[in-house]
Design a protein around this nucleic acid. Structure first.
Length: 888
DNA sequence: GAGGTCCGGGG
DNA sequence: GTGTACGGACCTC
């Protein structure tokens, strides 16, 4: 029988661990295979007397292993300690360490210890020889098997996975608070199935009857009903928007509170669990995978906001039902029509989560990584890069006779942190040549760091150590700033070996991908693309790992060797291009060089030159290092290191080009900018790059400024929105959105914003501090208030574009039109503020503002004058102002 | 530019 | 479960 594996655990049976591997059969049924006979073990360097007598110990045998740090030919004499119960390992390990001994591989999860030794990895298909063991009641999978033998199959296509999307609703006891599981019940749960369940694709369960609602007596009954439905439908994926940090912990905590065992895992003897960590929750449902579109989309898409409403409208063009938190209780307790709305709201959220999950292949990348690093999908989703790399490394090191060290202790990490501050240098970043450049060929090194590792055989196991064997110059490669490494003839390093395999495998997969694409085999294209992506991500992670203070095999000399060879490579490349070819390298960062080709204006010609230079340079590069022509910057405007805008043309093959605007380090979307800021910035960049007409760009900007001054910009382009994260009165400083919330509460207590609500605001004219002049846009419309165009000019419009214009030598005053017939401020009209100025008690002074234009300042300017020429005055909370007598 | 702080999604 | 434990945007020095 073939099983694709998703998860594993173990239980103790007659003082021996029994492994349970969960997966799917070819038919798409859930399956569990039982494996007994594998025992937990770890290594120690010496065997204390107490350990020999410990009843946990099954056997102790001497072994020889190679320590993975520094080139060495000697083997360590160690002892392999095999015990009965995996869960007892930590205490034995800690006791050994306390006694002054050293332990190895004593912090590897039992399931992963087994898989590593058996050569099994996540999502592999296993051919199971054995006997069906349907009589076991400890798991609830459709198929159960006792293993006699396992064969690893070559099959890559995934089984048919089954998903369940869910969304819960709950109402807080006190209006305006976020509900908590300790106190507030779940009132309703919507469920959306990836395939029909009892003839339905979706359902809503609750304990208030309604049309299309499956009703229970109470919350208790509803939650038990939920457990039954999950087990009955038996999903592989449990999906929900922010399910990781809200729905699932809430459900589990609620069940704990109501003394309902959370028995919806694939084992009958283990409940689902949730644990609160520093920042959020960690959840586990054994045998199933929890997938949160919120978490996944946040990593792979760039949006200003990641609310379900926002994401669904961006990605699906769909919207949530319009229900405010403040009306939920009313709907839950009110008439049937309102209740129906609540039901529909709940259902929509689960539907949207399911669509996002399914239509955007959100898991593909993680499936690819999981396949390569061998960790289960859930661990890849929840864990970081370190775990992936280390698991992979341990398997490879073990296979080659190396022992793998424990995770570093707190003290060790602190020590490394100090070391690192002194030592680790990064990539080489050239100072960009200022000003606009045209016809730039962009070349970069193909997988620079992995290639350097392979070229120079960089690895902890090839690093020449202080006490190890000595070598002649010919036998080693000496890095510019870092360690020396023995050449592959003496020993090939494990990391270079791993990278060689990964890179060859990826080339192979890409070849097959090309063919599958040509054949139009969509399923295979997806599989192969997933795989090459997984390999790429893994291969690029090795470099960073070795310079990471929390890594098990960390070494500064290794990390520094890689970056210093990188810097040397890029520097030499720059020199050759400038000396031998006579072109100017105007910018470069880590693995790329940008070369300005004078008097070459045709894309085809630029590509020819770029390709020629790359090829010729590559011929003289050591090892497998390869420079390649990547794209053209028709125009390139650097602002600073790591910040630029460019009009790029990327070769698509067959003489075709993809055109786009490349931006690095320039934020066009920021939470505290209104739409007008982003829009103006984008358009200014567009005009500058595509038309190369700075006059027109300035003019465009001035036109926007003029419309702003004349009040012709629609208000929705000037709105800034922020979330109220606490009660408005508990904000330490004055913040615009909190002030607006206070005003809204005062005006209409029934419609007071509550914690978690999004508050939109605009800034109106006046002399008070900015935050006090923040207003609800609806109120502004209603009362016909005027917006503060000076504020928008100075704080929203100018800052983003200023740096762009600066790079083109357009000064701020030129931009503002100063010195010309009419400056922008006069164009926009001055803000009158010369009114009576009573004395202000010092305690009331909260800031400063300009006498002429009313612009607020947190402290007076050095000159005591505003940019518009007006004097800076004190301003009080009440909006009065007085002349600053001594602005120092 | 480095170092510290805030905050997210969900109801 | 032989486990942990963010990351980007923003602000100040």
């Amino acid at each position: 029988m073939l099983v694709q594996i998703l998860d594993a655990d173990y239980v103790m049976l007659e003082n021996k661990p029994l492994l349970r591997i969960y997966g799917k059969t070819e038919k798409g049924d859930s399956a569990c295979v039982f494996y007994s006979g594998f025992m937990p073990y770890f290594y120690v360097d010496e065997v204390p007397e107490w350990l020999k007598k410990d009843p946990q110990v099954f056997s102790i045998e001497p072994v020889e292993r190679v320590y993975p740090m520094f080139y060495r030919t000697d083997k360590m004499k160690l002892f392999k300690v095999t015990i009965h119960d995996p869960s007892r390992t930590p205490e034995l390990r800690d006791k050994v360490i306390e006694g002054g001994g050293t332990a190895y591989e004593a912090d590897i999860l039992f399931k992963y210890r087994f898989m590593a030794d058996a050569g099994i990895g996540s999502l592999m298909w296993l051919d199971i020889k054995g006997a069906s063991s349907a009589n076991t009641s400890t798991v609830r999978t459709k198929t159960k098997f006792e293993v006699k033998g396992i064969n690893i199959m070559d099959k890559v296509a995934n089984s048919d996975f089954r998903s369940l999307a869910l969304d819960i609703e709950c109402v807080a006891e006190n209006q305006g608070e976020v509900p908590t599981a300790e106190r507030d019940p779940i009132i309703m749960i919507s469920l959306v199935f990836s395939e029909e369940y009892n003839g339905k694709k979706e359902m809503v369960i609750s304990y208030r009857p309604g049309s299309n609602v499956q009703s229970y007596n109470d919350e208790n009954g509803m939650l038990k009903g939920l457990i039954d439905i999950i087990n009955d439908f038996d999903p592989d994926f449990i999906v929900g928007y922010n399910i990781n940090n809200f729905d699932l912990p809430y459900i589990i905590e609620r069940m704990q509170r109501l003394k309902i065992p959370a028995m919806f895992t694939r084992a009958t003897d283990k409940s689902a669990w949730t644990k609160k960590l520093a920042m959020g929750y960690r959840n586990n449902v054994l045998g199933r995978i929890i997938a949160d579109p919120f978490a996944l989309i946040k990593k792979d898409f760039s949006f200003k906001r990641y609310s379900l409403e926002n994401v669904a409208s961006e990605l699906l063009g769909e919207h949530k039902e319009d229900v405010k938190y403040s009306e939920m209780e009313k709907l839950w307790k009110g008439d049937q029509k309102g209740y129906d709305r609540l039901v529909s709201y709940c259902l929509t959220d689960a539907r949207l989560a399911m669509r996002l999950f399914g239509e955007f292949n959100l898991l593909d990348k993680y499936i690819g990584i999981s396949r390569i690093c061998c960790l289960f999908l859930q661990d890849v989703l929840d864990g970081g890069e370190t775990q992936r790399i280390e698991h992979y490394l341990m398997r490879e090191f073990n296979r080659n006779g190396y022992i793998f060290p424990l995770k570093p202790s707190q003290e060790e990490m602190a020590e490394r942190d100090n070391q690192r501050k002194v030592g680790l240098k990064g990539g080489f970043v050239l100072d960009p040549e200022p000003g606009m450049h045209e016809n730039v060929a962009v070349m970069d090194f193909k997988s620079m760091y992995p290639s350097l590792i392979r070229t120079y055989n960089i690895c902890p196991t090839t690093l020449v150590g202080p006490d190890g064997p000595k070598f002649t110059e010919d036998e080693i490669s000496k890095s510019p700033e870092g360690g020396s490494f023995v050449k592959p003839e003496i020993r090939k390093g494990i990391v270079p070996y791993i990278l060689e395999n990964l890179m060859n495998e990826r080339a192979n997969v890409k070849k097959r991908l090309k063919k599958a694409t040509k054949d139009g085999n969509a399923a295979e294209v997806r599989e192969l693309n997933t795989k090459q992506l997984g390999i790429k991500i893994m291969a690029n992670a090795f470099y960073g790992h070795m310079g990471y203070p929390r890594a098990r095999i960390y070494n500064m000399d290794v990390a520094n060797a890689i970056t210093s060879w990188g810097r040397q490579t890029i520097q030499k490349t720059k020199d050759i291009i400038e000396k031998d070819y006579g072109y100017k390298v105007i910018y470069g960062d880590t693995d790329s060089v940008m070369v300005e080709l004078d008097k070459v204006f045709d894309n085809k010609k630029i590509a020819e030159v770029g390709n020629k230079i790359s090829e010729e340079i590559t011929k003289n590069l050591p090892g497998i290092m390869e420079l390649e022509f990547e794209k053209i910057f028709k125009r390139f405007l650097p602002l600073a290191k790591k910040r630029y805008a460019a009009w790029a043309f990327i070769p698509k093959g067959g003489g075709e080009w993809v055109e786009k605007i490349d931006m690095k380090g320039i934020e066009t979307v920021r939470r505290d900018w209104c739409d007008l800021s982003s829009e103006t910035l984008r358009n200014v960049i567009d005009i500058i790059l595509k038309e190369n007409d700075r006059e027109r760009a300035v003019q465009y900007f001035q036109n926007i400024a003029k419309s702003l001054g004349e009040g012709n910009i629609p208000m929705d382009k000037l709105v800034v929105t922020k979330t109220l994260t606490k009660r408005p009165e508990s904000y330490p400083g004055v913040q615009p959105h909190a002030e607006v919330a206070k005003k809204m509460t005062q005006r209409n207590p029934a419609d007071a914003p509550s914690v978690g609500d999004r508050i939109s605001y605009v800034i109106v004219k006046g002399t008070q501090l900015l935050s006090y002049r923040a207003e609800d846009p609806e109120y502004v419309t209603e009362k016909g208030l005027h917006l503060d165009s000076i504020y928008y000019m100075e704080n929203q419009l100018l800052p983003p574009v200023e740096r762009i214009f600066e790079a083109l030598n357009v000064t701020k005053s030129e931009l503002m039109g100063k010195g010309k017939q009419m400056n922008l401020f006069s164009m926009m009209g001055k803000q009158a503020s010369k009114k009576a100025k009573p004395e202000i008690p010092v305690a009331d002074i909260i800031g400063f503002s300009c006498e002429e234009c009313g612009r607020p300042y947190r402290r007076p300017t050095l000159t005591g004058y505003c940019e518009c020429g007006g004097k800076i005055l004190f301003s009080s909370a009440k909006g009065n102002a007085d002349v600053v007598k001594n602005p120092s």
